[in-house]
Design a protein around this nucleic acid. Structure first.
Lengths: 218, 218
DNA sequence: TAGATTGTTAATCGATTAACAATC
DNA sequence: TAGATTGTTAATCGATTAACAATC
């Protein structure tokens, strides 16, 4: 185990490892090597070993990693060994869709409150949660011990919503609005903007369109 | 202009630049320096200059970048100067939400077909598009010259859907299913899984929960 | 001309990969 | 014991940043 200075790249891989390990667990697999994992996940085995070893000695030389034990350890590292409450702001189509994720968010994560500034939506129910006005944000965050937030409001409102969330004590934000949210506060902000992703993907297209018969020009 | 070996990090930043430049354009701003951009976007100005200069000499020494011209150039680089057709597979809540993005996807990107394997959904209309069975995928991709795809099916179906998309000639995939999609083909796959993002975010939480009065233990 | 800002080189920093001793 | 696989060091590779000559 080395001195811990964990890069974001590592933190992004941990959920990928976790998901695969849970899959193995369901398949009754007891042990896995970094080589097996690497092959399935398209990641260099040395990288997997290095990632894991920066948090502790989880493997057994000559054997590999115990699936159950490694799952437990990664959950601890990601702090998924406690229940984490999430708020969702923006009860539009996307917010609606994500609120249904509660069914999928095993691992102790749960959306426990939904907010929207539109009075027409307030009071209505999505996935068993009453849509609240943003005025109630601060109190609800405290009362329900909400620590993460998902932003699915229009771009024009996103920065203001983020400011309110941070003011309310939120520790991390997953932003779906197509705008760059900024803060001076010590709050992690992830951007998950569909438009930007598609635009980046377009870069990898071949220059020319397919012809209608499926062939390519040039 | 250097020899072009463009990293994914650069490609991920280009849409961010583009979005900000369009914002400037709307504000009637004619010229912008890398320093101004960097300040707003929280990116090192040298990085911005380096990113842009790997595609050409777009700026003027002593002046900065012409907003209109740079927008045009970045659009060309991202291949957004042509209409790009997108297919969406999975007409659940998330698929439904994303299909409404057509309104936001300026820049010549458009979802032109929606597929779902559920016979109960087929024939129904979302955002003006009839939900088609996956059997029609290959023909529709050819006919409508579809080049990118968005996957919003359940995890268990995602790999099979991806295989079909690639077989049909799709050049890039944005995958929302919580599973690692793989391919040997020369197709770019982006993962946009909400669960994994939230799990990574959880890593940055402080170890302890807030108490109900808002204070922190330890 | 003086001030500003690019494009690019060189320096730094960080992340990935290879290699192998330790050891199950 | 022989084979397998970890944890870790060292080597490599790549990305970011600083610095500055060129020049608008």
């Amino acid at each position: 185990m080395k001195a811990p200075k964990i890069s974001e790249a590592v933190v992004r891989r941990l959920p990928v490892y976790l998901r695969y390990l849970i899959h193995l667990q369901q398949m009754q697999v007891k042990t896995v090597s970094s080589q097996q994992m690497g092959k399935t996940l398209d990641i260099n085995p040395a990288q997997i070993r290095k990632d894991l070893s920066s948090f502790g000695d989880f493997g057994k030389k000559g054997i590999g990693y115990d699936v159950d034990y490694l799952i437990e350890k990664i959950r601890q590292i990601l702090k998924l060994d406690q229940e984490i409450h999430v708020a969702l702001v923006g009860a539009g189509h996307l917010g609606h869709a994500i609120s249904n994720y509660n069914a999928y968010l095993r691992d102790n994560m749960r959306i426990v409150a939904i907010f929207d500034n539109d009075p027409a939506k307030q009071g209505k129910t999505i996935a068993g949660l009453v849509i609240q006005p943003l005025e109630e944000l601060k109190d609800t965050v405290k009362q329900r011990q909400i620590r993460l937030a998902i932003i699915t409001v229009p771009a024009a409102a996103a920065q203001a919503v983020a400011d309110q969330l941070i003011e309310a004590g939120i520790e991390g934000i997953l932003n779906f609005a197509p705008v760059n949210i900024r803060t001076d506060a010590d709050v992690k902000i992830y951007h998950a903007d569909v438009t930007s992703s598609l635009q980046s993907l377009a870069y990898y297209l071949n220059r020319t369109k397919l012809n209608s018969d499926g062939s390519r020009n040039k």
